[in-house]
Amino acid sequence: MYSSKLFALCLKYSSNKQDAEDILQDSFIIIFDKIHQFRKDGSFEGWLKRITINTALQKYREKSPLQLIKSKRVFQEEKEETTFPYDITRVDLDMLLILIQQLPDRYRLVFNLYVLDNYSHKEIAEMLSISEGTSKSNLSRARTILKEKIMNHQKKQEKA
């Protein structure tokens, strides 16, 4: 079901359900519009996904970068040292989604594009109008944040 996959995509790229719904709507309008530009020999699902991703990037591009700095500060406050071992099976899907959505916009976009949708840093740099180096460092920060949060979550579960 294309709509479910596309909405899932929107959720991953957004910070909340409302934004995801807006992105889904915008993408649909564009898809209807551009349907006959689609080449027969490409993957239809791939084309739908690409439009949806571009819509999502557009939405967050328009937001003020000030938001990013603010979230960064929050992250630094939460940092904790921990050596608890993690257990992959104990992090469920809902949690993964929430963790991604909690990332600051830029880090979330880069993480999605690189890790979940397999774009290269070169492509990401072009799509977000940043340098490749920025893309790499954003990805690395995103991973660090996610790692910390997962380990915190595990720690809390251990204690419970």
């Binding site: 993964l96 890790v115 996610l146």
Partner: peptide, 11 residues
């Protein structure tokens, strides 16, 4: 972790 967890995610 994220790739596998979210691979078949639909909503």
């Amino acid at each position: 972790l994220f790739q596998e967890g979210l691979r078949d995610f639909e909503a």
